[in-house]
Amino acid sequence: MKDKNLSCLTKGIIRENPVLTMLLGLCPVLGVSTTAAGSLSMGLTTLLVLVCSAASVSFLKNIIPPRFRLLCFLIIISAFVSTADILISAYLPRLHKTLGIYLPLIVVNGIILNRTELFASQNNLKSAILDALGMGTGFTLIITVLGIFREIVGAGTLLGFRLLPDSALILLLPPGAFFALACLFIVFNRLRKVC
């Protein structure tokens, strides 16, 4: 039982990482990962929404009508995203500006709908929360690593501190995001063989 819980929590971090194995949530990964701080914030917000949505769906799974389940999931996810959006705009306005349109777009993040539909709606509350935590951590890990890489190589800084005298600006542009993600895929595939 303990092993099952542990597996629920850890599978999303490397083994079944939603970004690198299912290519889910690529829009924010490519769009927001220009700075380490922005990436981490996006990852944590998504993690929070994912955990709350998965917990709610698991809790309500017996009363949600199967015919309208996707509609219910989207209403629940939208409610948590809107709440996060309002809270961030009130208490962290600078972060709200940095995340921009990608914050409300969490509603259509494939990872959240995927985990609520495939896992949370069929499992108990504890497993749903652990799965959401693991998947959210996996997403946060990838977007943050990408953000750190792109900020260092693309801007020559990390968290605003200058590390490199020169930088390759292409890494901060959309083609650079794909290039950085490809590099991450190479590292991840090697890592998965070792694990």
Binding site: L60, I63, I64, P65, R67, F68, L71, C72, I75, I76, S78, A79, S82, T83, I86, L87, S89, A90, Y91
Partner: peptide, 23 residues
């Protein structure tokens, strides 16, 4: 089924409006 969907929507709207008012 419609009642359940409406209830979920109402609770969601309540959560958003309370958060909006508090902030």
């Amino acid at each position: 089924q419609s009642l359940v969907v409406a209830l979920i929507a109402a609770v969601s709207a309540l959560l958003i409006s309370v958060t909006h008012d508090l902030t």
